[in-house]
Design a protein around this nucleic acid. Structure first.
Lengths: 207, 207, 207, 207
DNA sequence: CATGAATGAGAGTTCATTCAT
DNA sequence: GATGAATGAACTCTCATTCAT
């Protein structure tokens, strides 16, 4: 019995969240309007307010839902690989693949007003670092095994995350003209081995 | 006489642009309100409209002004270096330094509604690629000299730009807890030589 | 069901149009303010915008509605008379009666800014000439029957329409101190037979 | 000395009044803007306020000036004729001629908001009835001489004024497609002798 | 005397939120 | 449970008026 009710509630919520994700990512929070979300969800405007207290709540729920899905997908893929570099390679691929599949979601993390920024970022970290921690561990392990250079871990994470998010950002603003996952090999290659070929120069810069 | 008038006009414009940059970056375009911008500029609301036709115009002027400054600073620094890698290193440093000094400006390029996105991005490219072209040339020259690996130029630019913007983005959402320019060395090192130490692994991934 | 919805929409539109007619005629388009119209309609300001796209739209709807009513009333009365002069007499009476009953409406046709003038006048002619055409036919028929003097038809219409509108205008600016329909007999008399009694003088001017 | 100052003041006032008349008649009071008036007068906006206390004052001065000119022109012409009907004919011609020459001025008397209406109309009457009185006297004299039918004088004036103003109004809204003075003969003819030719019908309606 | 830069009250319009049905 | 008609606070933008120069 409770399950049936739950199932209706869940269905409605999903219906709304999907419509909202679409509209928010296209228009941003401030520009999105509840009417259009309701229309897209094929529900009355009032119904949205039965399930989400405010536009703000709805927005944060959309963020949560997206981050949740992302975390699950990445962790699942990373678990399949055993080697340190394999895990990192897999994390890069899956991260890019996720944002290609859910490119709507980029807008949600990118736009957005100051008052939300903090809240959104906080959720991003809450969800994200649970798997960044896995990456962090991988980096650490790699260093212990002498496979990865000794670099300050926090710096490394910033560069790693920055590289990934930045590549996604560029893909986005360049108009999604290529397949984002196709960037994975070059990203992996540069991240792992750098761009400089000349050995003398490498040594100069590698300290 | 004309100079005095000019100087007033210029002063007012600067006054408004500075206030606007602050507010826009804090609140985003849609959330910023003209009244607050006016207050911050210590001017009446109407005065803003004497100098800028609309809120939209004002916003785009803020973007232009920022991009202009950025381009000038980067080109000036890059010109000082002669070697290929030196130029690239300098561009990385100056880009990060610019956004640290003008961190307001990040928000302006990051937020923003779909309807503006195109316009803003278009300006970004107009201004930016004039100096990215210099970088592109440096990359190309580096490849011809056998200093830089043969990598598809467009891919390389995307990774390069993505890495920089991403590092800035991470700095921003992590709460600007460190000095952004301090990231330059590690960014340069990873970008130039990668993170993998183990030679066998390097060869595996370097193809 | 559809009927009920229709009836609500119709009721609201009427409610708003009536309030708007009142305010517009009192204040003119530019001076009227939507808030006051809303107040008078006992509705929120936003509600007006659910039913009419803009203040301008609302104004033109008020004009249309008035002209519609006028046309219907006049045509109905004119149809009842058979003789040429009877029809004209009836048109004069009904026209004056309409504006007395809907004296709000005078202001709407009289005031008004240049940018609207054209649109409003265009509607006026669209609606009005459908029944002025009837009058025109009556004039023409009267001339053929030798009852009405041979006068250029367009000139005649201008004088006829001018006389009516002018009498209404005078009534209005003199402060509506008398009943407008009471002017009908004297208007008809002068229009039909002129003011000059002396036969010699009549002949002098009647050519 | 005083004359020179006076002359400057007068020149400035004229300059402003002419510009204002033009703008007000084209745009109406509410839509007209002081900036454009100042521009047209080739003066600074502030200067207008040295000579006229407010936009409202300026508007009323424009009205006064127009009515003044109208009165002078009409009285001058009417004085030249001796016969009753001649005087009336002349008044009709001159009134129409004035508005053709100063067609700007029509807009000023026609548009306009409620709050002004009264004031403007009051001025209109103040100025106008000084010469309508002459017409009234002519009508009265005509009746005494048996040249004009016995009609209630106030009714007659309303019809007379209405006819003139209405003809001007029609000319205006029909787009000034003909010369207004050319309407004088037909207006005079209809006003003096009516439109009905058939004697029996005339008698029917002439009572 | 003349100016026009500056102003802020007030305009039209939008839209998140409520609540009677 | 679901709706969408209604609302009014809050937005951008205009412009009559002021006043330092």
């Amino acid at each position: 019995m409770a399950e049936v009710i739950d199932s209706l509630v869940e269905r409605r919520k999903r219906q709304i969240l999907e419509a909202a994700a679409h509209i928010f990512s296209k228009e941003g929070f401030a520009n999105a309007n509840t009417d259009r979300i309701a229309k897209r969800a094929r529900l009355g405007k009032g119904t949205i307010y039965r399930y989400f207290g405010s536009k703000r709540d709805l927005f944060l729920s959309v963020v949560d839902r997206g981050l949740n899905k992302m975390r699950d997908e990445i962790l699942q893929e990373v678990r399949k690989r055993n080697s340190v570099l394999g895990k990192i390679e897999s994390a890069i691929r899956t991260y890019l693949a996720f944002f290609e599949k859910n490119s709507n979601f980029i807008g949600i993390l990118l736009h957005e007003q100051s008052n939300f920024r903090k809240k959104v970022v906080q959720r991003y970290f809450e969800y994200y670092y649970r798997n960044v921690d896995k990456i962090k561990e991988a980096f650490k392990l790699g260093m212990e095994q002498g496979i990865i250079k000794d670099i300050d871990l926090d710096d490394l994470i910033s560069v790693y995350m920055g590289l990934l998010n930045g590549v996604i950002y560029m893909w986005q603003i360049e108009g999604r003209r290529y397949r984002l996952v196709d960037m994975a090999p070059i990203v992996v290659r540069v991240f792992f081995t750098g761009i400089v070929k000349d050995e003398e120069q490498r040594r100069r810069y590698d300290k």
